[in-house]
Design a protein around this nucleic acid. Structure first.
Lengths: 256, 256
DNA sequence: GACTATCTCCTTATGGCGTAAAGTGACCGG
DNA sequence: CCGGTCACTTTACGCCATAAGGAGATAGTC
C-alpha cells in the first residue's frame, strides 16, 4: 500500500498547498524562526537521500537545528508535511504537449520516470487520495494535453492515463528498489543473483523442466555490461513496455 | 518503495520455500510446539485483514498464543517470514494458457487483480529482489505460456511481462489504498472528495481555466452508483487500460 | 536415576518511530 | 512593567524488530 497523504484537515492543507495568504493578526509571543518552506526543503533533502524510511520528524528537526516537536507549529502532522513535499517536487515537471501525441506522451513518461528516480519516495505516495495540489494536478493536465491530438473518448482516456501512470511508477519503483537493496545490503544485483541462482539449482534440480519458458527467456538476454543487472533490465523493460502501450493507444485512435 | 523480502541467508530461506526435507538428527531439548506452516498461516491471516502495517511479530505470536520472540526459532526474521507468506499465497493462482493468447493473458491479469484484492499486502512486496519460490515463478511461467501463441521476441516479451505486472499491481494497489483509506479514516470516497473539492473551488477559483482538460474529463463520468467512487474508477480503468495494453501487444504481433 | 548438553520459549532491554502533554522563556499590546 | 500568548523544549506513551540472557524441558550417557 502506498504511504498516505491527504489525511488531515483539508482546509489547512489546501491553504498551504495553494499558498493562500492567511494574514493572521499580529500576536504576542516569540517570532517564528523557521518557515514551512524551509521544513519542506529539509524533508525533501532527507527523503531523497535516505528514502521514505529515513524520513522522520526527528531527522527533519535535527537538520534544522530543532527538535521534532518544533515542527508541529508549522505543520499539522507528518502526512501534511508529505503532502507539501509531494506537491513541491512535482513543480520540477514541465514536459508539455507536442503536435504528435506520441512524442508528447513519450516525453511525459520519460520525464516522469527520471523524476521518480530522483525522488524515489514520491513513487510511494498513494494515488487513492490525491494531494490535489497545483503541481500534481498540472502533471495530469499535461498528460491530457499531450493525449488531446489523439482524440480519444473519456473512458478510454481515463484507462490510458492510469495505465501509463501505473506503468511509469512501477518501472521506476522497480529500479529504485533494486538500487536501494544493493546499497542497503552491500550486495550488488549480480552477487545477489549469483547466490540465489546457485541455491535454486541445488534446491530445484528440475528447474528447466518445470519452468521451460522462464529458462529460455533468461538465457537470451543481451547485457549492457556497464550497468547493474537490474538497471539494465528495468531500462529495457521501460522502453519496450512504453512502446507497446503507445501502440495500444494508437490502435484505439484508429478505432475511434 | 516496496517492502523487501529475499534479504536473508538464501540457503535457509530457499530450503523452506522449496520444502527441502532437512532431516535434522534427533536433538535433546523440548519438542517444538509450533510449525513454520502455522506461523505462515497466522501471519497471512493477519496481513489479509490488518494490512502490511498491522503485520508485526508480536501480532503473529499473540495469535498463536506465544510471544514475538518465540517465532525466531522457526523463522530467521520478519523478511524471511514475508518470503514464505508471499510464495504461499501465490499458490492460489492457477489460470493457464488458452488457444487464443489474448484470452489467456486477460484471464491471467484478471485473476492476479482479484488476488491482490484478497491479499493487499502481496502487492507491496518489491519485485526487485524476487523471492524465487515455486509459486511466484509459476505465476510468471504461466504468463509466458499464455503469451507463447503470440510469438513475440524475447525483449518484447520482457517489456510486456513487466508492463502487465506493473499495470495489474498498480491498479490493484489503487483500489486497495482507496478501501484502506475509507476504512481507516471512516470517510467514504464521496465524503473525502466532497470536502476536498469544496475546498479546491474556494482556494483555486480559476480551477476550470487552469485545468480545462481535467475539468472536462471529470464532468463526463458515468457512475455505477452501487459502488464507491474510487472502486468504480479503478474497475473501469483496469478494464479499459488492460484492453489498450493488449491492443499494443496485438500490434507487436502483427509487426513480427 | 542422575547428570549434562541442548533446545524452546520467556523476560527484559535497546534504540527507533509519531505525537500528546506539560514546562520554559521570549515577545507584544496595554 | 505586566499579563497573555506564542515558539520551542523536555518528557512520556505505546508501538516496532530483535539482541541478550535466563528458565525449564528433553534427550543421550553413565
Amino acid at each position: 500500500m502506498g504511504v498516505f497523504a491527504a489525511q488531515g484537515d483539508p482546509r489547512r492543507t489546501m491553504a498551504l498547498l495553494w499558498r493562500v495568504p492567511t494574514d493572521e493578526p499580529v500576536r504576542p509571543g516569540p517570532r517564528q524562526s523557521l518557515t514551512v518552506n524551509a521544513i519542506v526543503d529539509a524533508a525533501i533533502a532527507i527523503a531523497d537521500t535516505a528514502g521514505m524510511a529515513g524520513l522522520s520528524m526527528r531527522a527533519v528537526g535535527e537538520r534544522l537545528g530543532r527538535t521534532a516537536m518544533a515542527l508541529y507549529t508549522y505543520v499539522a502532522d507528518k502526512s501534511e508535511l508529505l503532502d507539501l513535499m509531494y506537491d513541491h517536487v512535482h513543480g520540477e515537471l514541465v514536459a508539455d504537449a507536442q503536435p504528435n501525441w506520441r512524442d508528447g506522451v513519450t516525453a511525459w513518461a520519460e520525464e516522469l520516470f527520471e523524476f521518480y528516480l530522483r525522488h524515489p519516495w514520491a513513487a510511494q505516495v498513494s494515488m487513492a487520495r490525491p494531494v490535489l495540489g497545483p503541481h500534481e494536478l498540472n502533471l495530469v493536465e499535461r498528460l491530457l494535453r499531450a493525449l488531446e491530438p489523439a482524440g480519444l473518448r473519456g473512458p478510454v482516456v481515463r484507462g490510458v492515463v492510469s495505465g501509463l501512470t501505473y506503468f511509469v511508477q512501477g518501472a521506476a519503483a522497480f529500479m529504485n528498489d533494486a538500487r536501494h537493496a544493493a546499497r542497503e545490503t552491500g550486495q550488488s544485483d549480480e552477487d545477489w543473483w549469483y547466490a540465489r541462482s546457485a541455491e535454486l539449482t541445488t534446491v530445484a534440480p528440475d528447474f528447466a523442466d518445470r519452468y521451460p519458458l522462464l529458462t529460455r527467456l533468461e538465457s537470451d538476454k543481451e547485457f549492457d555490461e556497464s550497468l547493474p543487472y537490474m538497471e539494465n533490465e528495468a531500462r529495457q523493460s521501460f522502453t519496450t513496455g512504453l512502446r507497446t502501450m503507445l501502440d495500444g493507444v494508437a490502435a484505439q485512435v484508429k478505432a475511434a
